[in-house]
Amino acid sequence: MSSSSTLERLNENPVARPFVAIGNMAISGLTELGLVVQFFASAVALACRPPFRVTLLLNQMEFVGVGSLFIIMLTGTFTGAVFTLQTVNGLAQFNLESVVGTTVMIGVTRELAPVLTALMVTGRVASAMATELGTMRVTEQIDAMEVMAVNPVQYLASPRIVASAIMVPCLSMLFVAVAYAGAYIMAVPVLGIDEGAYISRIQEYVASYDVMHGFYKSIILGVLLATVGCYKGYNAAGGARGVGNATTQAVVISSISVFVLDYVLSALLMKFEPTYNAVSY
């Protein structure tokens, strides 16, 4: 009681007001983070418990994975090509054109593939999940499911999150493959870099742990974007506008979190890699 009145008094002070606002934002942000984690935990717990919803999982895997093939192939190819085009200029100043493949593929495997894949899938999939679940929420379809003694988190959220955890890393690997192709086409036929040197440098310096680094990250990013999409949709309220807000927030929050989480995961994973001693960060 007294704390709220203190807050109210603070709020009347024009200097303190922005700090109160920031504090409130921080509190509500942390509260929501807790709720998202809780939502995720129950979705995972329910995924491990019968009834196992195999058909729903396969449907979602098709939607997340097969449905994203085209955009991932397109963005992957162009990313590989343009990254090569941009990098080769810098390297040429040191007569190091032949390591362009190494530079590009380290960047792609470790960062660009997981992050860009997660962003593309967020735009396509997290938004769709938020819209679909949000519409079901505001038209009482989720309530109807509850009433029919079916756990809606298990029916709706678990298959989506699991499907995303499986398919996003696969898409990320596909991104690596097509980016390799795009980079090769740009480097060898277009820019005229010696093929033998180009490939042997990649084989020498791009290690399997570079690929795994991106792979592990993309599992977590897949989980993240599906969880945010489902959570926002599941908790939508207030008709068509509420669903619209849920979708916007799902895309914004999930995209930002992809970058933040990517940094955290990169720092963590590098502790377990041979490169750890080479750089201090």
């Binding site: 679909e132 079901m136 038209t139 009482e140 379809q141 309530d143 109807a144 509850e146 009433v147 003694a149």
Partner: peptide, 16 residues
């Protein structure tokens, strides 16, 4: 809830 059936005011059919 398995004992129950419920008719919603707006039907609440699964539209998918």
């Amino acid at each position: 809830r398995r004992k129950f059936g419920m008719v919603f005011q707006q039907a609440a059919l699964f539209d998918s």
